[in-house]
Computed example of a mutant assay.
Amino acid sequence: MILRLFRLIACQLLLAFACAQAQASDGIEITRNIIEASEDGYRLNANFEFQLPHGLEQALQMSVPLYFTTEIDVTRPRWWWTDERAVSQRQTVRIDYDVLTRQYHVRVMGSLQQNFTTLDEALSMIRRPSRWLFAPKGTLEPGKTYNVTLRMFLDRDFLQKPLQVNAFNNADWRLTSNKKNFTYKAE
């Protein structure tokens, strides 16, 4: 009897661990994170890997726009005080579906909109965004090393209020990446 109970508990723990691992792998993964110095300033060259959960696909098909926000924080470490924040920027991309034209629209907020016929093409623009100018030239001091934190998430703050309440109770609406930390030596 005790052996049977022990086996049952062990199986439940293994199942819970497997479910937690599967749920963790369903988020957004940052597969590329490179900062490039250009004549205009500093650009982020990043790639993100994720699959849109079924619930989000359904919401998109019902013309509910989804917003994906990328955050970058650049700090300079100091031994004598807290780290100095050099740059803290956000970029939000909106994706929506037009039922009448049967097209997906993707727009970087404050920029032009692009239209796509398939969801995979539209998501490709979000997964592999163009090089984002996140800081003008002269913001970072050449030769200094900076700590960079990068993350992407489904931004529920842009949703309509009734959807925000539902989004907090539904796991499909918690699509996010872990924070990716790396260092960058300014050029």
Results as ranks from 00 to 15, higher is better:
residue 27 G to E: 08
residue 22 A to D: 04
residue 16 A to K: 07
residue 19 C to F: 03
residue 10 A to P: 00
residue 39 E to V: 04
residue 34 I to G: 01
residue 40 D to H: 13
residue 39 E to S: 14
residue 7 R to W: 06
residue 7 R to A: 10
residue 39 E to D: 10
residue 23 Q to V: 08
residue 35 I to R: 02
residue 16 A to I: 03
residue 7 R to Q: 12
residue 11 C to E: 09
residue 24 A to D: 11
residue 36 E to S: 12
residue 9 I to A: 10
residue 35 I to M: 07
residue 11 C to L: 15
residue 5 L to R: 11
residue 21 Q to M: 13
residue 20 A to L: 13
residue 30 I to M: 08
residue 34 I to P: 00
residue 13 L to Q: 07
residue 8 L to C: 12
residue 12 Q to L: 15
residue 10 A to F: 10
residue 23 Q to I: 10
residue 32 R to L: 14
residue 14 L to E: 08
residue 39 E to W: 01
residue 29 E to R: 14
residue 14 L to N: 11
residue 41 G to M: 02
residue 6 F to T: 11
residue 9 I to M: 03
residue 6 F to K: 11
residue 8 L to W: 06
residue 26 D to K: 13
residue 33 N to R: 15
residue 18 A to V: 06
residue 16 A to N: 08
residue 7 R to L: 15
residue 38 S to Y: 01
residue 31 T to C: 05
residue 39 E to L: 15
residue 34 I to W: 14
residue 12 Q to R: 06
residue 28 I to G: 05
residue 21 Q to Y: 03
residue 25 S to W: 05
residue 5 L to N: 09
residue 24 A to R: 14
residue 24 A to T: 14
residue 39 E to K: 09
residue 24 A to V: 00
residue 15 L to K: 06
residue 22 A to C: 05
residue 20 A to R: 04
residue 24 A to C: 04
residue 5 L to H: 06
residue 25 S to D: 10
residue 13 L to P: 01
residue 27 G to H: 07
residue 21 Q to V: 07
residue 9 I to Y: 05
